[in-house]
Design a protein around this nucleic acid. Sequence first.
DNA 1: TCTCCTTATCGTCGATCTGACGATAAGCCT
DNA 2: AGGCTTATCGTCAGATCGACGATAAGGAGA
Lengths: 225, 225
Amino acid sequence: MYSPSDFPPFAVTVDLVVLTVRSDALCALLVRRGEAPYRGRWALPGGFVREFESVDDAAARELVEETGVAGLHLEQLATYGEPRRDPRMRVVSVAYLALAPDLPVPVAGTDAAAASWVPVEDVGALAFDHARILADGVERARAKLEYTALGTEFCGPEFTVAELRRVYEIVWGVSLDPRNFHRKVTGVEGLLEATGESTARDGGRPAALYRRGGASVLYPPLVRG
Amino acid sequence: MYSPSDFPPFAVTVDLVVLTVRSDALCALLVRRGEAPYRGRWALPGGFVREFESVDDAAARELVEETGVAGLHLEQLATYGEPRRDPRMRVVSVAYLALAPDLPVPVAGTDAAAASWVPVEDVGALAFDHARILADGVERARAKLEYTALGTEFCGPEFTVAELRRVYEIVWGVSLDPRNFHRKVTGVEGLLEATGESTARDGGRPAALYRRGGASVLYPPLVRG
DNA sequence: TCTCCTTATCGTCGATCTGACGATAAGCCT
DNA sequence: AGGCTTATCGTCAGATCGACGATAAGGAGA
């Protein structure tokens, strides 16, 4: 049906939209490009898929390289394949969405001049079509928060209801009633698992600490604002 | 940062999961392969992305070639890039989901021996990893029916509430109360647009005919079963 | 034409869920 | 001890849901 001469060769890369909630803002991990094209411009972290590596594995590898942390939530976002998206050659990029709790400091990648968490509201022009990819990733994260347990991925291994609520408030940019949020979130079967511990790290009355439960879909869904 | 010698060359293809509702079943469009590997095996329609064509354009082109119809709903599903998914070479495939009303007869593609609508329940082994791709497409369609207006894509340009309900019943494999379904679906702002016409093609009392409205997200969502 | 059968459409009812918000609990700070 | 902060529980009216009764409006056949 086809032979190697039948198809044009493509480069395949992965690009990562890594989001976290820190200092009252939804932030994305960006790297500053050290080479042309777009030298000095911010870009999404990413890199080439290797010859004997699956695309998913390439994304997981890059994520560990960039954040220094394994085990983060990682899911495919979309694939971008316009002919001119990279000026040098035909590149198809598979974008992934990763969610992280507030990590210490981004690890400077091997081939990136600098890496930084940037509030998504403050992101200016990015290299290639990365602004579009980042926007798609943010939109996906916002949408999935409604009907999946994804919000807990932004929290550490143990967290309070209030910390989870702040994740939702920051990602959606709304304010939620603490009492109703508490009722809904503790009422969803399998979302939260009580640890029995409590903490007063937020000030005020100590709050119960929870772990992520097994549930991945939320029924009923949380509703935006 | 990188040069043509830095990256391994990949072939990039598009694969289509084309779904329709016909004769009481959710059916997928399959083609029988005329060449090795998997000669004679059913597979998803698809083909190579051309050198100066975007990946999305390639999917749209293949969809028209296979169905003979333009303007169908088409969205990216996922990208599959395991190293050995094609035994001959490294192929990354971008899969798309398309929904179609009950079309006349599938058009035999140029390089496919035969094309046919096959109920998804009856699909056996497929070439490559196409069984997995098909399963992902079916699952996506089922999920999106809940909270988007996608169900109307399975209907013709004008349809009755009962025809839309049968789509949901068949795709989800459940039975829905006609009265409650009618109330919900006509209550969702912007989902349906009355034509003023009616038809008795389903027998019984004539039913009002509707067109797709502008809404694409459904709030509140329909609920499965 | 009249009766029956089929499907469409409208209403009703109790259970449940939602959002707004009052009340109380349980820490820390001074 | 008194006040401040946040956590957690309750209440209540309105919206929504599923189950299902009632009526409408065609066609088929006696």
